[in-house]
């Protein structure tokens, strides 16, 4: 479980996050949703420790992130996996080498065992055929899957995904969503996903936090999101035709 308490962050006098508190639960896909520029990425980067907040606290299963010693922080980081918006695969390495990278850095297993684990991760994301290809030789969806394989190589306890579906076609986006959800359940991870993809909200939104202009406006799950009375949330989600239809269908049933 990751707990964020009273988090505030400003950049050059402009407050991007206002006193945000939230709980991200273990074994669930926790979604942070909001418009572009609402502060989602800043919240995610603060939660990971890539950006230092101005005030507030972050706890990883009771361990306080802010003020943590270098050694402890490095141990905690090894329990984290991250899927970046652009995949962030290393250009100079093949897909297999990318997945093996965290194992090469931190595992004391033999080369054969490390390779076996990397191949298992690639098989898990259905990417065995691409092991010897470079990131520039594979599609966007394959890059995301390779990045997921790299993120789970060390069996992390926490998985962070920044816009995992950006630039993907709807079918591939659904596959990526399902993969992240299945892995979350399988590894009992605390997964935080930053998204503005409404398909993801319907598909895997087990715990959703809606942010508007740096303020937490609403928290709930995919079933509650449709029927919420929060005006700001409704403005955001019903901008999508898909959601309008979902709501309409729901009203007809009732």
């Amino acid at each position: 479980m990751i707990e964020v308490k009273n988090l505030t962050k400003s950049f050059e006098g402009r407050t991007v996050l206002h006193n945000i508190s939230a709980v991200f639960e273990t074994g669930k896909t926790n979604l942070i949703i909001g418009r572009s520029g609402s502060g989602k990425t800043v919240l995610l980067k603060n939660s990971i420790g890539l950006i230092q907040p101005d005030s507030g606290e972050i706890f990883y299963d009771g361990r306080k992130l802010i003020g943590m010693g270098k050694k402890e922080l490095n141990i905690l980081r090894r329990e984290m996996g991250m899927l970046f918006q652009g995949s962030a695969l290393f250009d100079s390495m093949t897909v297999l080498e990318n997945v093996m990278f965290p194992l090469d850095m931190f595992s004391n297993d033999s080369y054969k065992e490390r390779e076996k684990r990397a191949m298992f991760c690639l098989e898990r994301v259905n990417l065995l055929d691409a092991e010897h290809l470079y990131p520039s030789e594979i599609s966007g969806g394959m890059m995301k899957r390779a990045a997921i394989a790299r993120a789970i190589a060390l069996k992390p306890r926490y998985l962070f995904c920044d816009e995992p579906n950006s630039g993907l076609d709807p079918k591939t986006a659904l596959l990526i969503d399902d993969l992240i959800h299945d892995i979350t359940v399988e590894y009992k991870m605390t997964t935080i996903i930053n998204t503005h993809d409404m398909n993801s909200v319907i598909n895997i939104g087990e715990n959703i936090i809606f942010i508007k202009e740096g303020i937490k406006e609403w928290q709930g799950d995919k079933h509650q999101v449709i029927n919420s009375n929060n005006e700001a949330l409704n403005d955001f989600i019903f901008a999508s035709d898909l959601f309008k239809k979902v709501k309409k269908a729901g009203n007809h049933k009732s």
């Binding site: 490095n74 090894r78 695969l89 290393f90 931190f106």
Partner: peptide, 17 residues
């Protein structure tokens, strides 16, 4: 520089390297 703007450096940092 390219590794920085494509978040590859952030990816390395996140791993605790």
């Amino acid at each position: 520089g390219t590794m920085r703007i494509t978040e590859q450096i952030d990816a390395i940092e996140i791993m605790g390297v």
